[in-house]
């Protein structure tokens, strides 16, 4: 993994393997961590994969020497997030797995991912989802940018690259509540994308067959020069002390409109002192 960047863009897409939100999700075990069953590629990372594929297509396509690498960190099964990415169309994959990573919070996750990216890079562009659908903190992309000293372009709702005299520059749009911003940065940069940016493609038969021949590199913490106590539970700066499932909402009263439902709604609101 050491071709010169001059030949084409080298893009890393960070993908996470997460519990499927369509099923009940649980926190458990001695250290109150996420129970990993019924897991999938985080839906929000599909937008980052699609953004990478579209950038390559917009700048010469397959023959232009660009390369997209899907990267994940997690237990053995997490490699499935990389496999799905290969089917969707990225070129190769990297899986960082190590028992010592168990229980990592955002700071420890960003510590390990930063070392991994330095080990397998350099990359011109690092793309991530806007949030993982399990942790949902959106801390990891910002922390990675801080650790790697890269320009941070997060929550991008659009993304374009233009060649410059000495490399590439990017332009993105970011939506806040009361205003929209235009963001510009030179590459290398770290970009997280929202679900507004594109419509992700699904793997097709050809992609699924092609994925079988693509390489996945498996690395340990030692391969990235990270000590076991810098990550996982000992390396995390936060700790979960208690986790309780919320009682499910009990179903209330359901009525069918017989011409007076609007009035009955107001009666209900009045009864609840909500008017």
């Amino acid at each position: 993994m050491d071709e010169a960047t001059a030949d084409g863009l080298r893009i890393a897409v960070l993908v996470k393997h997460v519990p499927d939100a369509q099923f009940d999700r649980h926190i458990g075990g001695d250290h109150l961590t996420t129970v990993r069953s019924e897991s999938i590629l985080s839906e929000l990372d599909e937008y980052a994969l699609e953004a990478a594929l579209q950038l390559v297509e917009a700048h010469g396509g397959a023959g232009a020497g660009h390369r997209i690498t899907a990267i994940t960190m997690g237990p053995a099964a997490a490699v499935n997030a990389v496999k799905k990415s290969l089917q969707i169309g990225v070129d190769d994959g990297v899986h960082l797995t190590d028992e010592a990573l168990f229980g990592s919070d955002a700071s420890a996750t960003s510590r390990a991912l930063a070392a991994l990216l330095e080990q397998v890079g350099p990359f011109d562009l690092i793309l991530t989802g806007m949030a993982s659908t399990d942790g949902e903190t959106s801390l990891v992309p910002a922390q990675l940018a801080e650790r790697l000293g890269l320009p941070q372009v997060t929550f991008a709702a659009s993304l374009e690259l233009t060649p410059t005299d000495d490399g590439w520059a990017l332009t993105a749009r970011r939506d806040n509540d009361t205003f929209a911003e235009t963001i510009e940065a030179p590459l290398p940069a770290l970009v997280s994308v929202t679900d507004q940016i594109n419509d992700p493609r699904y793997p097709n038969f050809k992609g699924i067959m092609a994925a079988k021949k693509k390489q996945i590199q498996v690395l340990s913490l030692a391969d990235c020069g990270v000590q076991a106590d810098e990550v996982g539970l000992p390396g995390s700066w936060t700790r979960v002390e208690a986790a309780e499932p919320r009682p499910p909402r009990s179903q209330g009263v359901i009525i069918t409109d017989e011409g007076d439902a609007g009035i009955r709604l107001v009666d209900f609101l009045a009864g609840q002192k909500l008017l």
Binding site: S107, L139, Q143, A145, Q152, T154, T238
Partner: peptide
């Protein structure tokens, strides 16, 4: 949250969101 995230790395301080 992002400002908190990056300040957390600079200060080596844990961040809890939400």
């Amino acid at each position: 949250k992002e400002i908190a995230a990056r300040a957390g790395i600079r200060l080596e301080a844990g961040v809890v969101t939400d």
